[in-house]
Structures are given as structure tokens and as C-alpha cells.
Amino acid sequence: MGEVSLIDVSKSFNIKIDSEIHTVQALRNVGFTIRDGEIAVLIGPSGCGKTTALRVAMGLETASSGSVLVDGREVRGCGYDRGMVFQHAELLPWLNALQNVMFGLEMKGMRGAELHDTAMRYLDLVGLKGAWNRRPHQLSGGMKQRVGIARALAIDPKVLLMDEPFGALDAQTRESLQSELLDIQARTGKTVVFVTHDLDEAVLLADRVFVMRAGELQEIIDVPLPRPRGDLGVLRGSPEFAAARYKIWQALHQAESVAH
């Protein structure tokens, strides 16, 4: 199981500008439930609160009001039921790829041969077994992101939370990681919450797309494409893809025109 719900979550930040304190309402009464095993994509214009929603779900940020449920139970703070993949991987630079994956497992209390073997298995899952002893600065951007994914997956969370994980990558690397993510998700059945700016990425990955605007959830759009998604290149050219993309584009466009 891996069902995540945000119940009526609001979040405001106090920011100081020229010694005056302003309140920024990042989330306003946001509520949604992400089903077990689905890939949910959060999309919306910059500053609409996607990252904040994800961080609240992870427990890195406490909601000003409202609550977060995982499988119906309220959670406070971070937990091993949720794994976070950061935007810029955020590997620990003094550890090699394997040790980075081992880090989360060690925190969970795993030791010895089991620790090593489990970490190696997840590195293998993301295709980086051969680079296990390289430190982060010796890895390309895409490889770092894979290690980040392996690190989050290794603790066997129910839910994988990803904040624009492929945002900084070139088109080709991005595409190969997208299909890899789909593949891994199909094999492991994890629930995935994925934040992106990219319309194509949203359609390729999502079962449902959550469109946000100015701190609120505006619309939930089903993506009626079959699973497994198959060859992403072929999918991109299909009329179904174009139709789904257009629907989300419209919702986003509406979101922007209301916002301005």
C-alpha cells in the first residue's frame, strides 16, 4: 500500500523584506489523495506551490494547518514510508555512489553484508553497478540523478516523491531516465508523486495530472494512455498523446490567464 493524502493543507511563509515581515501563502486548503501504485504529476506555473506541497508530503515542511496521511494514518515529519528524490540529486560529495545509496539504509539500521548487497542491488537497478566506486563529481548529471533515485528506492518506501528530478538534464538523458522511471515503477509498484514544469514529461509519466495555481489545486486530469507506456518515442507521435497533452495545456493556460 502507498496512498498519500493531503487534507486541507495550508502553508504560509513569513518572509522579511526591508525589515518588514510579509506573509506568503504558498498553499491554500489543498486536498487530494494519490492512489496506491499510481504516478501522480504536479504541474503548474512557477511559484504555485508544487515544491511546497511535495515537501509538506515528505515532512520536510510542516503544514500551517491541515494534515498528511499515508495509508490513512497521519504522519508528522519524515519517515521511511516516503523516499525523496531531490532536484539536484544532493548526493553527499565525500561518499562514492555505493556509499551514498548505503547512507539511507544505514540510517534505517541495516548493517554488514546485507547493507552492501542491498545498496549494490539498487545501483544495479538504475544501471550504475559499474560506477559504484565513483564519487559524485566523477558522475554526470544523469548518473547523479540515478544514484539519487537508487538511494530513495533502497529504503523501500511506499511512496517516491520527486521534485523536478530531470529538470536540469539534457533532452536525451531526460528521456532515458523517464523510461527508466516508468520501468522501475512498473516493477516495484511504488506510488510516485512527481513535480515537473514540462508538459510532455507530465503526459508521458502520469496516470493523473494535478494542475495547481496560486497555491490551490485547480484541476485533476486523467491521462487515458495504456500502461505500460511502451516506446516513449512512438507514444509521443500518437494522437492520444496529443489529445492528453492538449487537455493539460488548456488547463495550464487557463491557470495562467487567471493568475495574471
Partner: peptide, 27 residues
């Protein structure tokens, strides 16, 4: 801050974050 959040995301206690993340980052 994000390096420390890596520790928090994996539920590391404060002292472990200090030893395993803050200390090496400060070297």
C-alpha cells in the same frame, strides 16, 4: 540546507546529521 535535508529525509537523528553530514561538509 539541502544536504541537511538529505539527513532529515532519511530520519537521521540530529547527532547523526552532525557527525555524518555537517562534520564532513565542514572539513
Amino acid at each position: 540546507k539541502t544536504l541537511i535535508e538529505v539527513g532529515r529525509a532519511f530520519v537521521a537523528p540530529n547527532m547523526v546529521i552532525l557527525r555524518r553530514i555537517v562534520f564532513p561538509a565542514t572539513l
